Amino acid sequence: MNATAAYQEALAQLDQWREVPEADDVAVMANLVAILKSLWPHCTWIGFYRAPFAGQDLVLGPFWGDPAPLVVPWGSGVIGSCAQERAVQIVGAVSRFAGYIPAVSRTQSEVAWPIIRGTHLYAVLDCQAAEENGFDLADIEWMGKFADRLS
């Protein structure tokens, strides 16, 4: 299966999970993390930080990878910056990102995508790779499609 077909299949699966009445967002997010790990085996960490209250610390989970900080302060690191700015953060070299939070020592690059519901930042989808510039444009575009489906 080519990459585009794999991404389209993953989006369709995400849509199906979202339609299950008994499923909550955390369950759907957990399965999405599993799919992304299969699509991106080069990742060192994939997961979500949720924003239960506007402007307050972001809360971990669900995720795949090494243990991570339980909370990320609003505006701190790649994830907190993504939340505060409500903008995608594409960091090709985390060593050059001011305020980077080094939770996974193997991580060299990171992409964080905001998930916004209505006017509220709901969560941040974060993916990290072991290589500098570890995500290409297609990866980032598809990450956005997954994030948009959760908005």
Rank of each mutant, 00 (worst) to 15 (best):
A123D: 04
H120F: 10
K37C: 14
P69A: 07
A6N: 13
N2C: 14
I35T: 15
I140G: 02
I116W: 00
P73D: 14
W74H: 01
L14F: 14
A27L: 05
A12C: 11
L60K: 12
V88C: 05
T44E: 12
F135V: 01
I116K: 02
N31G: 11
Y49H: 06
G144I: 14
G99T: 06
Q8A: 09
R149K: 14
S81Q: 04
V59A: 09
I90R: 13
S105I: 10
F48I: 07
C127F: 10
D148L: 09
F97M: 04
D126Q: 01
G47H: 07
W40E: 12
V72Q: 13
Q108M: 14
L150E: 07
L11F: 15
E132S: 15
V104M: 03
W74I: 14
V28E: 03
A83Y: 00
P21F: 02
M1G: 15
P69V: 06
N133D: 13
V59Q: 11
A129R: 02
T107C: 04
A129L: 02
E131C: 08
Q108R: 15
Y7W: 15
Q108T: 06
A34Q: 08
I35Q: 15
V26N: 11
Q84T: 09
L32A: 09
Q84F: 01
W45F: 05
K145P: 10
F146K: 07
G61Y: 13
A123P: 04
W142G: 02
D136N: 12
W17R: 09
D139G: 04
P114R: 00
E9I: 10
A112F: 01
N133P: 00
H42M: 15
G118R: 00
C82V: 10
G144D: 01
A130V: 15
R106T: 15
A6E: 10
A10K: 03
E141Y: 05
A12H: 15
I46N: 11
P62E: 07
A54E: 11
R18P: 11
L14Q: 13
S151E: 14
M143L: 15
E131L: 12
G92S: 04
A51C: 15
Q108F: 06
F97P: 00
Y49Q: 10
